[in-house]
Nucleic acid binder design. Structure first.
Lengths: 247, 247
DNA sequence: ATAATATTGTCTCATAATGAGATAATAATA
DNA sequence: TATTATTATCTCATTATGAGACAATATTAT
């Protein structure tokens, strides 16, 4: 971020809806684990959710989509609003102040970024392997964290993440969660691991497979030969019937 | 609303979070039907959801609760956030303009109430028989409407209500919806009707009763003698185990 | 080649849940 | 006392689920 970009941002108050922000919990699936994309705030040992503000001339959902597209490099991301975080005190001010101080950025006491913000929570489901995070604005690093090994979090993001997970768990049977988190093809064990990591429970291989196949949404493709000394598993994909549905 | 109250409201812009509003879908159960509380906008043949703004010094949820307590006369209302309505164009301006015009209220073109608003949707579950609606601000009437016999609605409230219903349907098996919508005691048929009107489907009496009793959340109280020429049904209440849980 | 090993894909069977009809109990009224 | 309209259960076929067992197969070791 250049000097002039910074100045423009600090003066962009009129461009955005005041006192409203968006926070996104980006879920990905890697190494059989559900993970969340976090950004490190420049100069602080603190991580935060990808987020941003809503331009006056954009729909809220468009703004959320824009924030995510910019940060993940993906298009047409699956998004779901799961909560709003509207307590009077959400620790935005102290975090922003220490951030500005650490980075030698001078802002007036009443600067718009130090005001109270109501945050709209969205969660996104992305194909981990296709994500190519970009560092924007005030972030100096990104990383994927396992849901139960989270680092030091900014603001009230430690309240936001559990609520997002809870909503995802609730939606697991209603929406086609796997469709958005997995790649084009996947093994039954991968699908099972996804369910297990989201629900936080172990499932039985035989019964899980029976159940999934009975839903009639999977199509068996070729086998996956990994070189392992055992029977090769089939690969599956979601069938066409599913692809034309809302997920 | 007196002249001075009106003037105070029109000038209260600084008191509220700008460009954010709350809309509440209040569900009640009466005559075996799921109903929604709507308010008639003074001077217009248009009904709207109970709503309001968020004071700078209140949590969002507190504000939502306050709005509902004021309008329904109830305390400790069950509330759940179900969506946000953040399109650029939500028809707030034209509705507010025609409302002001009809009521001979002069406001400048750039008045805060005519700006774009992002609305936070909450739904409430209330005991119909305990509600005692109060007419506040710009409303001249209130009424309960069946979910599929709604009148002419203001703003984008015709988008908000279906989304609220959809969320309620989804929550029916997860949260104890009946606990908040029914009175202290109720018959099995009433509970069944509640499920039917929420889901929009017919259920079988015998199997519904078997299912509900197997959940172990109901306690059979006395019988209800209505004078009808048939076997009197039992009354039930939710048992103590349930009352100490979150609903 | 053949055996051993680690998985994967199915099968089986007991148990639980559900769908759908049938029957018994009961609170009035005729 | 019979009739009627419900309510509360019961029954039984069907389907879904939990849990263990076993056959198939892709490699490595012998």
């Amino acid at each position: 971020m250049t000097e002039s970009e910074l100045a423009a941002f600090l003066n962009s108050s009129n461009h955005y809806l005041p006192q409203i922000s968006i926070d996104c919990v980006v879920f990905g699936f890697h190494d059989n684990q559900l993970k969340i994309l976090l950004l490190k705030m420049k100069g602080l040992d603190v991580w935060s959710l990808p987020g941003g503000y809503i331009p006056q001339d954009e729909d809220v959902e468009t703004a959320a989509m824009g924030i995510l597209e910019e940060r993940t490099g993906l298009k047409e991301i699956y998004l779901e609003q799961f909560g709003i975080f509207g307590k009077k005190e959400r620790y935005t001010k102290p975090f922003m102040e220490s951030f500005f101080k650490k980075n030698n950025i001078q802002v007036p006491e009443n600067h718009w970024t130090l005001q109270r913000f109501v945050s709209i929570g969205y969660y996104a489901l992305v194909d981990f392997s296709k994500v190519n995070p970009t560092l924007v604005n005030f972030t100096e690093d990104f990383d994927w964290y396992e849901i139960n090994k989270l680092p030091n979090l900014a603001f009230d993001h430690d309240e936001i993440i559990p609520k997002a997970l809870q909503t995802l768990q609730l939606m697991l049977d209603h929406k086609l969660v796997g469709f958005n988190l997995l790649g084009e093809v996947f093994t039954m064990i991968e699908l099972q691991s996804l369910y297990e990591t989201i629900l936080g429970t172990k499932l039985r291989r035989n019964n899980f497979q029976r159940k999934m196949l009975s839903l009639g949404i999977l199509e068996r493709v070729e086998k996956l030969y990994t070189g392992a000394a055992n029977k090769a598993p089939y690969l599956y994909k979601f069938n066409d019937k599913v692809k034309n549905t809302e997920h």
